[in-house]
């Protein structure tokens, strides 16, 4: 467990990062706030829900994007959209909690099916559920409006603020992303999270200590799905629309890529992965065109980046960062005792 030591350089860096994120609207343009960071926070939350299941629980779930998509659809169906013949137009304070509850239930049921399997079979079952969700929304016109989905889904003008303006939306997404991040960090050391890590390491022993392993895993799916559901609500407000493609096979796989590229070891990993993904997604096209290549090959660049990360650092960017620090630390240790005294380091493992 790598907790942050109070007063260490790590804490200072965390405060600095927090400050930069809070003051971002002062120096960043609307496009960066809305399209880059707004989107990255949302994708980061969905990938965080996968990180919680995979990193702490050892369960690779491909259903998290579908859970977010489900919440997005529910907001459109129960609330307002341009498709007035389907949307019920209920007020946001019913719609949003209901959407989160239904999506969480969906994720929990998917988990209940998946938890009795291990490894590749968990991936296959959750992928099957994700595919089923995609095809169902595309073919069902009565409730999900088929291929075109819903457009004109806007956040409620709460407190007289238009939450879809770049600066308000930036803070809205930042608030929930930070909330989800600290919640996962906190729960990882609470009995629920600790037991989940125990189950990851050794399910048989956890049974022999009195834990109901199956129920605990399902509860983990419920917890992770609630985070993904909140992200799904933000996602439908960001795009103002939801369609089958929102939770298509491509986005489902992208969440896995984001989580793995960022690193599954700690909750910050998914957000690092998300910002890398969004930057690539946004600028790869221009970059390729400037090289005289065809712009639609941007997926190739993302795929190549994924390959490089998985090949050289299976624990993602986080792992790369940890090893670099380790190397610097061990180089320091080899220096003279005087040097260490000046640097104030003990030289032993922290």
């Amino acid at each position: 467990m790598s907790g942050m030591q109070p007063g260490g350089p790590r804490t200072a860096a965390a405060w600095l990062l927090g400050l930069i994120l809070l003051l971002m609207p002062a120096f960043a343009g609307d496009f960066v706030l809305f399209q880059i960071f707004g989107w990255a926070f949302i994708l980061g939350m969905i990938a965080l829900s996968l990180m919680f299941l995979a990193g702490y629980g050892g369960m690779v779930s491909l259903v998290q994007m579908s859970v977010a998509g489900c919440a997005a659809y529910m907001v459109a169906i129960f609330g307002d959209s341009a498709i007035t013949q389907i949307s019920l137009g209920w007020p946001w304070w019913i719609t949003v909690p209901l959407a989160i509850a239904i999506a969480t239930l969906f994720g929990t049921l998917a988990g209940a099916l998946a938890v009795r399997t291990q490894g590749i079979y968990t991936i296959m079952i959750t992928l099957a559920i994700a595919s089923a969700f995609f095809y169902f929304t595309r073919q069902n016109y009565v409730v999900f409006n088929g291929f075109s989905g819903f457009n004109g889904v806007l956040p409620p003008p709460l407190f007289g603020v238009d939450w879809r303006q770049p600066v308000p939306f930036y803070y809205l997404a930042l608030f929930f992303a930070a909330l989800a991040y600290f919640l996962v960090l906190y729960v990882s050391r609470a009995p629920f999270g600790l037991a989940l890590q125990g189950i990851r390491d050794n399910p048989r022993r956890m049974e022999a200590l009195g834990f109901n392993v199956v129920m605990h895993r399902i509860a983990a799916y419920a917890f992770a799905s609630a985070i993904a559901a909140v992200a799904g609500v933000l996602l439908v407000w960001l795009n103002a629309q939801v369609s089958p493609g929102t939770a298509g096979i491509g986005p489902v796989i992208d969440i896995l890529i984001i989580a793995v590229v960022g690193g599954l070891g700690r909750p910050i990993g998914p957000f690092i992965g998300a910002i890398i993904y969004v930057l690539l997604r946004t600028f790869a096209l221009d970059f390729l065109v400037s090289l005289g290549l065809s712009g639609e090959r941007f997926q190739l660049l993302i795929g190549a980046g994924f390959l490089v990360i998985v090949f050289w650092s299976p624990d993602g960017v986080l792992g790369l960062w940890d090893r670099t620090r380790e190397r610097i630390a061990s180089r320091d240790r080899q220096r003279s005792p005087l040097y260490r005294a000046i640097r104030g380091q003990t030289g032993g493992p922290a």
Binding site: M1, A190, P191, F192, L194, Q197, G198, M206, F211
Partner: peptide
């Protein structure tokens, strides 16, 4: 059969928690 990634006290804590209530506590 121990939890190699966790500290000794966390291992024992899990054992104590497993036979007590509040196994799903988020606090």
């Amino acid at each position: 059969l121990l939890f190699g990634g966790l500290a000794v006290i966390d291992n024992i804590y899990l054992a104590c928690r497993g036979v007590a209530r509040a196994r799903y506590s988020m606090v």
